[in-house]
Nucleic acid binder design. Structure first.
Length: 801
DNA sequence: GAGCACTGC
């Protein structure tokens, strides 16, 4: 078994990467030092407007019409040598890869849009004037000097430098992708930014969105093949494309933006592109990042022995932020945060406050307390303290509630009274995804919830952990977007310097990689140990991923992709789900499995507002079905469809309308993928038969997420892996209280393992052990199991059969 | 008898 050898070789190189959870030293009280504050002034970029040189051109001649002709003649010249080089001068030197900033300025000032040959609209000039004030714009000449000469560039562009909108346009002028049927791509980690930036750039280039400039995100392709030459896309989309076309041959230049965020997809793309650029000398690559880990990228992309990949730096345009630290560590950051907010409210100039917390419950609690305290202050002294409004912000908050962060601060209570102030208490969503205008003060306790993956128990879980220096800097920066601001860090400067990691651990070191490994194998990269990772994941994580894929029969014992695995890779899902979907037509329940998969792929649909807990639980109980939580999700979805996806209906039943709508979209997309492989969408009439079939399908995908009740007291043992199925109850878990089962079945399949007040399994359905033995004989090969209650139970099941 | 940080295909 080669797979075993591959796995062994992982074991041999093991350097398990346990995530450090350093907690700040405990201590007594907080003081915000007002005198002698520590300054941490954030670089203020200059807004320099570019200067135009005197290169003259007849203003009416369409420039790119000339370019197109020139390129054509260039090709002819190469073919027949009938033309001399003079034409290049006549046509302002527009040759791919040879353009200069002077020429581009000329084109920008021209009356005719070179990309459409239409006269520019009135708004074009107006927008152009704005663009000229962006810091990046002043560095155009420098950019072309580097870009024309090098295949790879690392760009450091701080917040507000304009890199995301301008650099792809600069590239387009140099690559002239439309003249050679190529595309310039710029990836983003998030969908909203992708679409809004594309829209902005289409305006700047004076073209219609979806024509020359477009975007591509899941569920929405706003591009026109043959016309679009600049595409903004999410990194996941490009990764999917790389799976099908490892040469990414459509592209002339690929720009990976926000590389410092180190999303899974961007990390893998960096690995793929590093080898790809060596193979394809015509492909250019720009890595754009906001922080100084660009040196790491530079080192990574520089092939040993050759000259270093050039760095191109443009400073940002933000206002200085003064940073304060506490003199002593804070024993209770929540309490300290409340005190700091109130202190700012009483003592500081008008300006809104952004407070970073870790999760929904904490945020709601803090908002409630701040409101109580602020009301007390007003009652006590209405003439010196203004009203304070505290707004929660986290992603599962319904959209219309999220909108409140844009509300103006409350008005003064009496005509000459002190003005009101707005506090936004937010999760990390406000660190990079959402920008709130008017924030002048940031309160940063220094923690966030972070995903950690423990390959040994195969579980991802969320842990409240200290943030990184980079993250703290990002949070502070949020105070300086509209005017100079202040950031109060609720930890000591010493802790900042010595306790915080430089960067947040990249996602790839904190995730289950089964999905990624399948994509890489499908893209032809079988040798995962030698894959050139920016940061290599723990060998054990890779081993677990390969092992899972092998159990699911997606890869064979030699580590080769099977026919089944090849189809599985096409689904935008974890491999357990795709396996389950692919077998479901045989079990005559693919219609239902599609729905269950969609429901489990979107955020939690159950709303539970803190002031309506009982009502929400009662509403949820109405959806209960005997079979378990998976069938309950199916029931909710079907009722949602029966009720014409009515928002009102979702509201009265305490269901998330947006999550359900997402489920509809996901389901549609999965159904399309099923269709591509002629997997039928079928149902059974008999309800009892059907629920049995659904549970069997669940077993086909999730046989590794089985728990067995031991001891009869509601303690369950999860089967972490063949080796660790001990009687030891330290590993015992329980059904989560949200579970809809009214009994405690002996064998269950669970969707999530959560670590909160204790280990829980959530979203649970009872199954029969004989199905497990039937559908996953490889995994349940008892020869390899240690003795124990679970093994004995399984042997009894075998004997019965 | 609890609590889903945040993205992405």
């Amino acid at each position: 078994m080669t797979l075993i050898i591959i796995l062994r070789s992982f074991e041999g190189t093991r350097s398990t990467d346990d995530v450090d959870v350093a907690i700040f030293p405990a201590r007594q009280k907080t003081e915000i030092p007002k005198e002698n504050p520590q300054h941490d002034v954030i670089d203020r970029g200059q807004a320099t407007s570019s200067t135009q040189d005197g290169a003259s051109a007849s203003p009416r001649e369409p420039l790119f019409a000339v370019v197109l002709r020139e390129v054509a003649t260039d090709r002819e010249r190469a073919a027949s040598s009938t033309l001399d080089g003079a034409s290049a001068t006549r046509n302002f030197g527009y040759l791919p890869g040879e353009v200069t900033a002077d020429r581009v300025h000329l084109a920008l000032e021209h009356d005719i849009n070179p990309f459409t040959n239409q006269p520019h609209t009135a708004q074009y000039k107006k927008i152009l004037e704005g663009r000229k004030t962006l810091p990046v714009f002043a560095h155009m000449a420098e950019f072309y000097k580097i870009f024309n000469k090098h295949q790879i560039i690392i760009m450091i562009g701080e917040t507000g430098s304009g890199k995301t909108t301008q650099i792809p346009q600069f590239v387009a002028y140099s690559d002239l992708p439309h003249t050679k049927n190529k595309i310039v791509a710029c990836t983003q980690p998030r969908r909203v930014i992708t679409t809004s930036v594309a829209e902005r750039v289409a305006d700047e280039m004076d073209v219609q969105l979806g024509k020359q400039v477009g975007y591509s995100i899941r569920f929405e392709d706003m591009t026109e093949p043959g016309t679009t030459f600049l595409t903004y896309m999410t990194d996941g989309i490009l990764l999917r494309e790389a799976m099908h076309d490892p040469d990414l041959s459509r592209y002339s230049t690929i720009i990976l933006d926000e590389a410092h965020e180190r999303t899974l997809a961007t990390d893998i793309l960096m690995g793929i592109l590093k080898t790809l650029v060596q193979r394809c000398p015509d492909l250019k690559l720009i890595i754009m990042s906001a922080t100084l880990d660009t040196l790491k990228f530079q080192k990574y992309f520089t092939v040993s022995g050759s000259t270093p990949v050039p760095l191109f730096k443009v400073s940002g345009r933000t206002y200085p932020v003064e940073v304060f630290y506490t003199q002593e560590p804070e024993p209770d950051y929540v309490e300290a945060a409340i005190r700091t907010v109130l202190m700012i409210h009483c003592a500081e100039e008008p300006g809104d406050i952004l407070l970073f917390l870790t999760g929904e419950v904490e945020i709601e609690e803090v908002c409630r307390k701040i409101k109580l305290e602020a009301d007390d202050l007003i009652n006590f002294d209405p003439m010196s303290v203004g009203p304070l409004m505290c707004i929660p912000l986290y992603s599962s908050l319904p959209r219309q509630h999220q909108q409140h962060i844009f509300d103006p601060p409350p008005k003064a209570i009496c005509p000459n009274g002190p003005p009101g102030r707005k506090v936004v208490a937010s999760t990390n969503i406000a660190e990079s995804s959402l920008t709130i205008d008017g924030i002048v003060y940031v309160v940063d306790p220094g923690f966030s919830k972070q995903k950690v993956y423990n390959p040994r128990i195969r579980a991802e879980s969320l842990l409240v952990s200290p943030i990184s220096k980079a993250s703290a800097q990002q949070r502070a920066g949020r105070a300086g977007r509209t005017r100079p601001g202040k950031c109060y860090r609720l930890y000591t400067e010493n802790d900042f310097i010595s306790e915080l990691e430089e960067q947040t651990h990249p996602e790839i070191l904190r995730s289950n990689l089964a999905n990624i490994v399948l994509i890489l194998i499908k893209a032809g990269m079988k040798d995962l140990i030698r894959f050139d990772w920016v940061d290599a994941p723990a060998p054990e994580t890779l081993m677990r991923a390969l092992e899972l894929l092998n159990y699911l029969a997606a890869v064979d014992d030699d580590g080769n992709l099977t026919a089944l695995g090849s189809i599985m890779a096409e689904f935008p899902l974890d491999p357990q789900f795709s396996k389950m979907l692919i077998v479901s037509p045989e079990l005559k329940c693919s219609n239902e499995i599609l729905t269950i998969t969609a429901m489990l792929s979107v955020p939690n649909v159950w709303l539970r507002p803190s002031n309506k807990l009982k009502e929400a639980d009662a509403a949820k109980a109405l959806f209960t079905v005997p079979g378990g939580d998976h069938l309950m999700l199916l029931n909710v979805y079907n009722r949602y469809i029966q009720n014409q996806r009515d928002k009102n209906w979702t509201w009265v039943h305490y269901l998330s309308a947006s999550a359900l709508l997402q489920a509809v979209n996901v389901r549609e997309q999965l159904e399309q993928t099923m269709g591509r492989f002629e997997l039928a969408v079928v149902s059974m009439r008999d309800q009892r038969e059907m629920s049995l079939a659904i549970k069997q399908a669940l077993c086909c995908g999730f046989f590794m997420q089985v728990a067995h009740m031991v001891g009869g007291m509601g303690d369950y043992m999860t089967m972490k892996d063949n080796q660790a199925c001990y009687l030891d109850l330290r590993g015992a878990t329980a059904l989560h209280p949200s579970c809809g089962l009214d009994t405690q079945p002996e064998w269950v399949i669970f969707h999530e393992f959560v670590l909160t007040t204790r280990p829980y399994i959530r979203t649970v359905t009872d199954v029969r052990p004989e199905w497990l033995l039937e559908y996953a004989p490889l995994y349940f090969d008892l020869k390899n199991w240690p003795d124990g209650e679970t093994k004995r139970a399984l042997i009894r099941v075998m004997m019965r059969a």
